[in-house]
Simulated assay, not measured.
Amino acid sequence: MTIKRYGVEGGKGTGGQHLPFSRAVEAGGWLKVSGQTPMRDGEVVEGGIIEQSRIAIENCIEIMTEANYGLEHVTHVSVVLTDSRYFQSFNKVFKEFFGEHPPARICLVADLVVDCKVEVDVTCYKAP
């Protein structure tokens, strides 16, 4: 089985910090996208949970698209919110993207190492 890594050069985090991990890894038809926050060009996009959720999911989709996966291939999503009061608002955004192909999901509340409200990662499967 071949393992393909996307973004092995690492991305840029807040303050231009080099991120020492792949944006995604693909093996045997599976694609695991690293957790995405509402960042653009290495900086967190300020805003409420609705806007930040959209950007985090869009960042996942951008990486999935690069690897030739679509929303229909998403099997599982992990969500970290920094406040449980964001749950209903996040669900509204989630449904906008995944309403036709709802994946399995976990959502938890925890502090994030980046100053934002949400982080999302996805796992996809497409028969090789």
Rank of each mutant, 00 (worst) to 15 (best):
P20D: 02
P102Q: 05
A56K: 02
V113R: 14
R23T: 14
D115L: 08
E72H: 11
C116S: 07
I61M: 09
Q36P: 11
K32C: 15
C116G: 06
G28H: 04
S34M: 06
K95P: 12
Q88D: 13
M39T: 10
V25M: 05
S22C: 12
K92M: 11
R85Q: 13
E96K: 08
V77K: 00
S22L: 07
A67Y: 08
F98T: 02
W30D: 11
V74K: 03
Q36S: 09
F97E: 09
W30P: 12
Q88W: 11
V45C: 10
G99N: 13
Q52N: 05
W30A: 14
S53E: 02
E62C: 11
E43H: 10
Y86Q: 07
C107E: 01
H18A: 14
L71D: 03
K117A: 10
G47A: 07
T75H: 09
C60F: 02
H101A: 14
E58F: 00
H18G: 12
E66R: 09
K92D: 12
S53V: 04
T82P: 03
E43N: 10
E72C: 11
V25A: 03
V33M: 08
F94M: 07
I106P: 11
F21Q: 09
H73F: 05
E96I: 07
I49L: 00
D111H: 09
V25P: 02
T75I: 12
N59G: 01
M64Y: 07
P102V: 06
